[in-house]
């Protein structure tokens, strides 16, 4: 049986847009190995650097915020980013559990 557990991240994105923030939506689109969160997991980031939700268990969120702010700065609409444990910066924002995750960033506008 499947349930529709939903973390209301999109509802929160709507609230942020209502107070005129620029909002980036990050969604887990692919996982390999023991990546901690399933496909479809979401996180939102705004131009102030606030974030809500999660795409891993706290392993790569800092980097996702940084990438999102860059996307806004460059005024691009979307970007795909990947995190692997073999990444050189793994000690800082790789997945300690050895998984890999692919995340799609998109501006809501």
């Amino acid at each position: 049986m499947k349930n529709s557990f939903d973390e209301k991240i999109l509802d929160e994105a709507k609230d942020w847009l209502a107070v005129k923030r620029n909002v980036i939506l990050a969604t887990v689109i692919q996982t390999w190995g023991s990546s901690p969160r399933p496909i479809g997991s979401k996180m939102i980031i705004n131009d102030k650097g606030d974030f809500s939700g999660s795409v891993t268990g706290g392993c790569v969120e800092t980097a996702v915020v940084r990438e999102s702010l860059n996307l806004l700065k460059e005024n691009k609409n979307f970007k795909k980013i990947e995190f692997k444990v073999s990444n050189e910066s793994a000690w800082e924002f790789g997945l300690a559990c050895g998984g890999e995750v692919s995340i799609f960033l998109e501006q809501i506008n």
Partner: peptide
């Protein structure tokens, strides 16, 4: 994603 689409998603969920 367009704002309009986001609103429609929330509407459908409700």
């Amino acid at each position: 994603m367009k704002k309009k689409l986001l609103n429609k998603i929330i509407e459908n969920k409700e």
